[in-house]
Simulated assay, not measured.
Amino acid sequence: MAFNFLTADVEQQKQCARYRARQCVAEQNGRYVKINDKSYLNFSSNDYLGLNHHREINQALSVGAERFGTCASGSSLITGYSYAHQALEHDICDWLNKPKCLLFASGFSANSALMQALGHESSQLYLDKLSHASLIDGARSSAAKVKRFLHNDIEQLQRFLAKNQQTENQDNELNQVIVSEGVFSMDGDQADVANLAKIAQQHQALLYLDDAHSIGVIGNKGQGSSSLADIDVVMATFGKSIATSGAFVACDNNLAEYLINFSRHYIYSTAISPALAWATKKSIEIIQTEHWRREKIIELSKLLTEKLDKKIKLIENSSSIHAIVIGDEITTLDVCQQLRNKGIWLSAIRPPTVPQNSSRLRVTITASHEVKDINYLANCINEVIQ
């Protein structure tokens, strides 16, 4: 029978403890998730600021649906670009101090689109080793030369850039793009944004940052990595801290014009829901003013670090994401199940998402959590990890 690999490959995933299955969520908020009629303390949510279910955002969604409809009814280059989209783009430009902004259906789509756009045959892309799959896929499908530097290894990146400039014929156009993430999704650590921006300027390269896990959480007004340095191109998603759906790319006028004319992801995709755009506009307004949400994440993250036993291998950082490295897949799944038995919902992250023998629990702390939640989580982790 044809396509035997479909069942064979899935069976192989089961054999090596890498099988993935969906869970139907009946209800969720920043603290709790209800699955199979059981409620759990939720430490797997990317709703970092606890804005999902926010009354004002829900009201904005309703108003947007009444005024603009729930569907864009076309791509942005036909009749899908509404006033709701334009207003949201303007707000993002003001927020991040960028000339232009374009909206995309998802972060994966935006990253793929930008890697293909910047990945001209005359370009060289330098990606951090832990860059998101969408960045890697987009870069590999581009016409550019692609090189990956060791995670957060600034010195190796500089060597790559210097070597490329020495070997490249001066008569040829040299288009170099440094690609990284503001906060890395699996480790929760940050890129050295200020240093990356400095290096990019020194080598006349563009700096591209995926700020999906930084936006809203970092910066006095939640500007993400843009609060740390002047970044050439910023991509961020709406489905995490901003608590809606979709993504944006903030850049200069030239790149925006190029994307509008040549990016297949942008040209041939239906625009995001204008009602969601209107709700996103309200969410960003709240993010900029409600500083306590970011302060609470910092406070609770510090508490978790203090409460965990020293034998626990925690990748310490100042973001919402806290990785507890366990090692092999089977042990990680067992620990995850023990925690679920205690009413804690955590995700077991396994290869190929993370390197071999670095399977982990990915703990996300949100502004909706309370001190008692963190205390309970730490006590349970200390108990089940021997």
Score class of each variant (00 low, 15 high):
residue 331 T to N: 09
residue 305 T to F: 11
residue 263 S to Q: 00
residue 129 K to E: 14
residue 374 I to A: 08
residue 81 Y to S: 05
residue 187 D to A: 07
residue 135 L to E: 03
residue 144 A to Y: 06
residue 266 Y to E: 00
residue 26 A to Y: 09
residue 351 P to F: 03
residue 59 Q to M: 11
residue 129 K to F: 12
residue 277 A to V: 09
residue 290 E to F: 13
residue 2 A to K: 13
residue 309 D to R: 01
residue 310 K to D: 12
residue 135 L to R: 05
residue 363 V to E: 02
residue 327 G to D: 02
residue 339 L to A: 07
residue 5 F to K: 02
residue 215 I to D: 04
residue 373 D to A: 05
residue 252 D to G: 11
residue 124 Q to V: 07
residue 90 H to I: 15
residue 252 D to K: 09
residue 63 V to S: 00
residue 196 L to M: 05
residue 145 K to E: 11
residue 183 V to F: 03
residue 178 I to Y: 06
residue 225 S to E: 05
residue 301 S to I: 08
residue 358 S to I: 06
residue 48 Y to S: 07
residue 194 A to G: 15
residue 105 A to W: 01
residue 228 L to A: 10
residue 229 A to F: 13
residue 13 Q to K: 10
residue 77 L to V: 02
residue 236 A to W: 12
residue 239 G to Y: 06
residue 129 K to I: 03
residue 41 L to N: 05
residue 10 V to R: 15
residue 342 K to F: 00
residue 285 E to M: 04
residue 48 Y to D: 03
residue 81 Y to F: 06
residue 8 A to I: 11
residue 51 L to I: 02
residue 103 L to A: 01
residue 225 S to V: 09
residue 165 Q to G: 11
residue 254 N to C: 03
residue 198 K to N: 14
residue 301 S to E: 10
residue 295 E to V: 01
residue 286 I to M: 11
